[in-house]
């Protein structure tokens, strides 16, 4: 990890500081889809909101730091880019492919399934939205 992780987020399901609104914890698979690939020893993960209204939540919750923490020990450095036009975020996971390409011994030497590994992450969504979209609690 290149950066020290900032203090942890407030525990889910509690009232969020300042907003006074309830939230629920949801796995990203119910909020986004995506695809991943490789460039050398870097895997890219494109994360796409399943619905446009979910995109701002991804922007706010799926931060560079949280993704770096999610992939701790599996990537050396994480970058994030925003594509609001596609309701998508693009993450670069540097040093994630064990040398990458033909050098790597990994089953997933080309990072093809890192996208689904990111979908394991959980984030908070407003309770009202979670109820309306019937998002399963993690």
């Amino acid at each position: 990890m290149s950066k020290t992780v900032k203090r942890r987020r407030a525990a889910p399901k509690k009232s969020r500081a300042g907003s006074g609104k309830k939230s629920r914890t949801v796995q990203l698979r119910y909020l986004a889809h995506g695809r991943s690939g490789d460039k050398g020893d870097t895997a890219n993960v494109g994360l796409v909101a399943l619905e446009p209204e979910l995109y701002p939540i991804l922007v706010k919750e799926v931060t560079r730091a949280r993704v770096a923490r999610h992939f701790k020990g599996m990537a050396s450095r994480v970058e994030r880019f925003e594509l609001p036009n596609l309701n998508a975020l693009n993450f670069l996971l540097h040093g994630a492919l064990d040398g990458g390409g033909t050098i790597s011994l990994k089953t997933d030497a080309q990072g093809k399934v890192y996208s689904t590994a990111l979908l394991r992450m959980t984030i908070s969504v407003p309770e009202a939205l979670g109820r309306r979209l019937r998002l399963p609690r993690a």
């Binding site: 995506g34 991943s36 690939g37 890219n44 494109g46 796409v48 880019f81 594509l83 998508a88 693009n90």
Partner: peptide
């Protein structure tokens, strides 16, 4: 189309 657009993407700009 979106899934293919983000495939092997670096800095999207």
């Amino acid at each position: 189309v979106t899934e293919q657009l983000v495939y092997e993407m670096g800095d999207p700009t």
